[in-house]
Amino acid sequence: MDPIPGGREPRQQPLLDVRNLSVAFHDGETWGEVLTDVSFAIEPGEFVGIVGESGCGKSLTALSILGLLPPRGVRLGGAMLFDGRDLAKLSERARREVRGRRISMVFQEPMSALDPVFTVGTQLLETVRTHFKVGRREALERAVEALAAVGIASPRQAAAMYPSSLSGGMRQRAMIAMALVCEPRLLIADEPTTALDVTIQAQIMDLLIELGQRTGTAILFITHNLALVAESCRRMLTMYAGQIVEDGPVREILARPRHPYTAGLLGSIPQSSRRKSVLPSIPGRVPSLHEMPPGCRFAPRCAHVEPPCLVPQQLVSGRDWRKVRCRRAGELALPGAQS
């Protein structure tokens, strides 16, 4: 049952239901709101992508869900219902029990995300023993199993190694193993492949997809690269300047984007078949806090801006599970991905 009245349609209860999440930082004088009215849901076992340029608030959304925002100078609003409980209302202690156990996270930089002075095995078994009352030996067995599950060929040897003696791709596999060792319900992967070279990148993407299907863990995949989302996710969210601006099935959005920003991101995907066309990347850049437009936040960069755009835009659901934060979405016929 949905504990909050006026919620969504009574189908399956979502695993994570983020409602009107807002995050503001205090800069010493005033509060600056970096995330505004962020709402989305993730179903159990779903593979969802969040895409947006750097600085749009993707990482901040992830850190809010995990409760890893700085302890002071932060104001959090809204609700994050996970398995029916509001994460925002949990005590720090209760949140620690969720972190790494129910929701875990993989970060961008595998080079620096592991403690350099402990072996990989020690760090994995530490995760196990943080959440389960098991002995060292059993925890190590689980750690080795987890390393094997992410495709590390000799997991026992890898467990005895320090992070510095593993390659970048191996480290990211170890990070994923560590994130999955307690069999969480949700894995947040924040740009997990950005720091890796292209072949390794593809391997890690395949691994995430395979693990998601095999373990039933829902995955929230964060990237600035729409091409990766296009290849791997069923559903996607577009984020712009601290807001969700589009939400829907990947295939439909790619075929017919409704938000001009999503369309702009689509246009900047390199088309290997049409090499002569120069990348039509979106002109301008993500506005900073002090230059945030009062109306539609994308207006300064939007080719379709008109007077109705100069008031704040709401994320509106269509009849087809798609949502978009653009007044003109209905009238515009934006180009999709050429295929």
Binding site: F107, A113, T127
Partner: peptide
């Protein structure tokens, strides 16, 4: 450091 963020993310006190 980044790895301390990882430690917090895995639920360590």
């Amino acid at each position: 450091s980044q790895y301390v963020r990882t430690l917090r993310a895995k639920g360590l006190g």
